[in-house]
Design a protein around this nucleic acid. Structure first.
Length: 549
RNA sequence: GCCCCCAUCGUCUAGAGGCCUAGGACACGGGCUUUUCAAGCCCGCGACACGGGUUCGAAUCCCGUUGGGGGCGCCA
């Protein structure tokens, strides 16, 4: 029997998993775990025009990265598969035929244009919302076939019962929707594929789904689903509509936002079409033209390239973005869980397993939430602080693996550990990269920040330069290259010359990294090693002198 | 426009009639620490949208207003 709880996450494959989807997936996962049930993954790829190549793979990769492994679905199988709706067309056709034969559905022959006109006319007449007018006489099978042959579209519509519906929602309570708000909706599209409303009902029943947790944007669709269930004699699952997640500015979180940020930066930098193509590495001028006009999105890698050249931070929207920015999956899970759910006390730190034990629908709120990046960042920082080295190391390697190869790619474990220790207090791996990446760049190629060089090496009659030169000799003669020795050497030098430590450490830091940001100076030198430190100081002296000249 | 949902600090939230002079977290402000960037520590600022009821008593219940959000597709 199907007394066992079964939940599902049913994304459409349009790209990576985004925050809202991740939250829906998480809550479904948690509910199933909490109630000892099964969590099913189903790919809703019924819109052939929107499907994106390999998007299901990306979705699954993100889900797994978060730790939300499904019990049934693509790649793991299960007794109610297949789990791609595109592979279940026979079932939908059979079910639609049943509805047709039992008088619950009928053919409709209007073109999209005709429907648009009908909608416009209804609006002109001042009607409240468009409802498809059910015809007196329905097109026959023969007429449908004739229309098909004539190349006209043929869809199947469901005969919506003429009565009010009450959606029993576990979060919102009973929601009443009047019959006047409902109409005969399409269940089979012109291309023969099912609509979402149809496929979702057929599959939820076929897969014995008991609880449907989904975004609140689906609330008004629910009567359609309930009517379908009634027509089929399917049980009505428990519904729970989740509040929506917004950006801090109250707008909906959307992938388009990433493009907007970069587009605005490109505009501010005065880049023309040619330049954008060049920097983004895009060969199609038409694409760039549309993108500049705000009418389309750039491929992810192209956008990332352009953003990097413009030095703008692209807001993370999709789970994969957070992964690439150096967030921990357990932090995202923890944080997302708190968007719409709370334990009832002031506790905020939860692992996935802990959430599985305490999650209940009763504690899910009704109010929409804003996605506070600052708080997420703080969570990430605290998690790193609390994580042990094996965890940090594994996460660091994961981060390196999903980003373009950089100076730290391929470093051995001992060095990676040392880097992480040297960078303690970091918030994301981007911090680590920003702080220590330059130490692994070629000694003759890393850039010098002119401002830093002027301030710390050239100012006050090149006081910093003198310090650096002195130190070079001392460092060359150091007995060994341990952090302790280096620290001691630097402190002693400062003391002997009555200088504050900052007056010694900063010039040295600028000399060996080109910037004012690096791990503690003795660690910085330690990581570089004697030879490279000396080589870098030499180069710094040359750079500073040429800048002064 | 019509229908539906929602409403506590800037943000996420605790609060299920007296425990609330409303608690926590992040952000913010100030201070400490300091060799940069972070991190850390201490202190502080800060909300029941508004108006009516109900009640001995309301952030908590009811109604209205306002505000926010969602829906009104051959998208999901």
């Amino acid at each position: 029997m199907s007394e066992i709880v079964r939940t599902r996450f049913a994304p459409s494959p349009t790209g990576y998993l985004h925050i809202g989807g991740a939250r829906t997936a998480l809550f479904n996962y948690l509910l199933a775990r909490r109630l000892g049930g099964k969590f099913v993954l189903r790919i809703e790829d019924t819109d052939q025009t929107r499907n994106i190549e390999a998007a299901d793979q990306k979705l699954m990769e993100d889900l797994r990265w978060l730790g939300l492994q499904w019990d049934e679905g693509p790649e793991v199988g299960g007794e109610f598969g297949p789990y791609h709706q595109g592979q279940r067309l026979e079932l939908y056709r059979e079910r639609a035929k049943y509805l047709l034969e039992t008088g619950h559905a009928y053919y409709a022959l209007e073109t999209r244009e005709e429907l648009e006109q009908m909608r416009a006319a209804a609006r002109a007449r001042g009607e409240k919302g468009f409802r498809y007018p059910r015809p007196q006489r329905f097109p026959t099978e023969a007429e449908a076939e004739q229309a098909r042959r004539a190349g006209r579209p043929v869809v199947i519509r469901f005969k919506m019962p003429d009565r009010d519906f009450t959606v029993p929602d576990r979060i919102l309570g009973d929601v009443h929707i009047a019959a006047s708000e409902l109409s005969d909706f399409v269940i089979i599209k012109g291309d023969g594929w099912p609509t979402y409303h149809f496929a979702v009902v057929v599959d939820d029943a076929a897969m014995h789904i008991t609880h449907v947790l989904r975004g609140q944007e689906h609330l008004m669709n629910t009567p359609n689903h309930m009517a379908l269930q009634e027509a089929f004699g399917y049980p009505v699952p428990t519904y729970a509509h989740l509040p929506i997640i917004f950006n801090m500015n109250g707008t909906k979180m959307s992938k388009r936002e990433k493009d907007k940020v970069v587009r605005d930066a490109a505009k501010a930098a005065g880049l023309d079409e040619q330049k954008v193509m060049e920097l983004a590495g895009v060969a199609d001028p038409q694409l760039v033209r549309l993108w500049r006009a705000g009418e389309t999105q750039l491929p992810g890698d192209a956008l990332a390239r352009l953003a990097k050249k413009l030095a703008v931070h692209v807001p993370e929207i999709e789970i994969h973005d957070f992964r690439k920015s150096g967030y921990l999956p357990e932090v995202l899970v923890n944080f997302i869980a708190l968007l719409g759910w709370s334990p009832g006390d002031s506790r905020e730190k939860f692992t996935l397993n802990e959430l599985c034990r305490v999650f209940t629908l009763e504690r899910v709120g009704k109010t929409n939430a804003r996605f506070d990046r600052d708080k997420l960042l703080a969570f990430n920082t605290m998690a790193f602080e609390a994580a042990d080295m094996p965890r940090k190391l594994a996460a660091f390697r994961d981060w390196l693996s999903v980003n373009e190869p950089g100076p730290m790619t391929g470093l051995d474990e001992a060095t990676l550990v040392r880097v992480l220790e040297a960078c303690h207090g970091f918030r994301t791996f981007e911090d680590v990269d920003r702080k220590a990446g330059v130490l692994f760049a070629a000694d003759d190629a890393y850039p010098y920040d002119d401002k830093a060089v002027r301030k710390w090496l050239l100012k006050n009659e090149a006081a910093g330069l003198k310090v650096v030169r002195d130190l070079k000799a001392l460092l060359a003669a150091a007995t060994d290259w341990s952090s302790a020795t280096l620290d001691d050497l630097i402190r002693r030098y400062a003391e002997q010359h009555s200088l504050e430590l900052g007056k010694v450490a900063q010039p040295l830091r600028v000399a060996v990294t080109g910037t004012t940001i690096s791990p503690q100076i003795s660690e910085t030198l330690g990581l570089l090693g004697r030879e490279r430190t000396l080589a870098r100081i030499e180069r710094a002296v040359r750079v500073a002198e040429s800048l002064a000249a």
